[in-house]
Design a protein around this nucleic acid. Structure first.
Lengths: 144, 144
DNA sequence: GCAGGTTAGTTGCACAAGCAACTAATCGTT
DNA sequence: AACGATTAGTTGCTTGTGCAACTAACCTGC
C-alpha cells in the first residue's frame, strides 16, 4: 500500500462519498451521478451537456443518461441551443432549486465529517493539492 | 463546484486513475479492481479475503469476484484457513510476482505524473491529508 | 454442549458506467 | 460552395458493482 497511494486514497474517499450520497439522497430518488450533475448546475446553469461532462470527468454517454433520469424526475429540462443546434442547453426546474439548500448543506456536512480533525489551513491545502493532482492527471490524458 | 470539493476531486482523480490502469494493464487482461487486489497482496500476502475488502473499501461480493477472476487467470490461489475454516487465505502465484515490478513501477509513474509539479513536501502532505480524510470518512461510516 | 448472534465468503439480481458506433450539426480549408 | 474533419449528443452492448439473501463456520453465555 505504499506505491499507488494517491490513486488509492482517491478511490477510497470516492467510494465513501458515493455511499454517503446514496444513503443521504435516496429519499429524493437521486443517485450519485445525478447529485453530481445537480451540484454542477447549481454552480452554473444554462450550459450544454458537454460542459457537465467536462466538469465531472465522466463519459458523455453516462452524463446523457443521468440527465435523462433527472429530466424524467422533473429536476431539469433542456432546450436546443440557437447558436449551435447540436448543443442541448440544460436548465434546472423549480423542483431542483427547492432541494438545493438541502443538497448543498449535506455535501458541506460530508466534507466537514471527513476533515473533522483538520485545521482550516489543512482543509484548504488538501483541496488545492487534490485539484492540482487532478489537473496533472488531466494534462497527461489530454496530451496522449 | 465549491461545496463538495473533496469528494469531487477524489472522484475525478479516481476516474483518471481507473482509466490509466485500464489502458496500462489491458495487455495483462487485468481490470482496475484486479490491479488493486494485486497491489494489496504485493504489500501483504497470506491474508483472508476480508483483509483485502477492508484495505480497498469495496463490497465483499465485488472482491470475491475480482479474486475469482485473478484465480482463473492464474495470478493467485486460495487455501482454506486451518484456524478458521470460514476464511480463505489468498496467495500470489509465480505469474503474479513476475509482473510485480512492472505494475509497481507503472503506479509509481502515475503518481509522479499527477504530482509532476509538486515539491517533495507537497507530495507527502497530499498523501497524509488524503489518508486522514479517508480515515474521517471511515470513522463516520463505522459509527453509523 | 446447545441456542442465538456474528462473521467470511458466495450467489442472484438490478443497475449504472464505459466503449464503440452512430447521427446530425458545425467548422475550416481550399 | 463543397469537401472532409471535428464536435454534441444518443443508443447498443458488455461488464463491474452494490445490495440483499444465503450458507457455513465460529463465538458467547447460559
Amino acid at each position: 500500500m505504499t506505491v499507488y497511494s494517491v490513486g488509492k486514497w482517491a478511490a477510497v474517499i470516492q467510494r465513501y462519498t458515493h455511499q454517503y450520497i446514496d444513503k443521504r439522497f435516496n429519499h429524493f430518488g437521486l443517485g450519485n451521478t445525478e447529485v453530481l450533475v445537480l451540484l454542477t448546475l447549481y454552480d452554473q446553469e444554462n450550459v450544454p451537456q458537454e460542459y457537465i461532462t467536462r466538469q465531472i470527468v465522466m463519459d458523455k454517454a453516462t452524463i446523457t443518461r443521468a440527465i435523462k433520469r433527472l429530466e424524467e424526475k422533473g429536476y431539469l429540462y433542456r432546450k436546443e441551443s440557437v447558436s449551435d443546434r447540436r448543443e442541448k442547453i440544460v436548465f434546472l426546474s423549480e423542483a431542483a432549486w427547492k432541494i438545493e439548500k438541502e443538497i448543498s448543506e449535506a455535501m458541506r456536512e460530508w466534507r466537514d465529517i471527513m476533515t473533522k480533525e483538520f485545521t482550516e489551513e489543512e482543509k484548504h491545502t488538501l483541496l488545492r493539492l487534490m485539484e492540482r493532482a487532478a489537473e496533472g492527471a488531466r494534462a497527461e490524458v489530454e496530451s496522449g
